[in-house]
Nucleic acid binder design. Sequence first.
DNA 1: CATAGGATCGCCT
DNA 2: GGCGATCCTATGT
Length: 199
Amino acid sequence: MKLPIEYYRKSNVVSLAKSFLGKYLFTYLDGKFTGGIITETEAYNGIIDKASHAFGGRRTNRTEIMYADGGTAYVYLCYGIHSLFNIVTNRKDIPHAILIRALFPIEGLETMMIRTNKKNLNRMNLFIGPGLVSKALGIHYSDTGKKLNGNEIWIEDRNFKIPNAKIITGPRVGVEYAGKDAALPYRFRVMHRDLEKII
DNA sequence: CATAGGATCGCCT
DNA sequence: GGCGATCCTATGT
């Protein structure tokens, strides 16, 4: 079933980020239906988290959408090239976010391979990296602000449970500037080869 | 207005 | 494992 907005309003962004592993992320964009299983996430814990764009309560044109109600897409451009897809969580005015870093492809494989210029289907390493995930799903930074209970970008729970023993927890990628917050264990992932055995 | 740099990727060696 | 691509955002004058 499609996750209701209530699901995204939970207050613990770290456990919520972990709970997205094994959920199905779908898009219907550009007339194409694509999606897969979320296999890597990172939590960004609002105004007290130095790695978060909303650290210290900063509000800019870019970060304003992080203060929206849970269940909103926060997509921004990184390195001038990559659209990075984040899920805004918690309630309005609490700028929690979860970055989706990897996807195990399920639906619309051909479309996703065309979008990412992949020639071979190799689920071990396909769509690992947040820029690639957005590219495969057709998500662009102009999609920021879209609600996740609509018909363009949404997440489904299909009762697929990842065993705790298969979840790798560690520090987030590329946030060295965040001082001691850089070491926080806010990154969660499942190896694609483990997923293939479970599926 | 000008400028530095970024929650990255793919290609090259 | 090193580097270039590429452009928006934030910040400073």
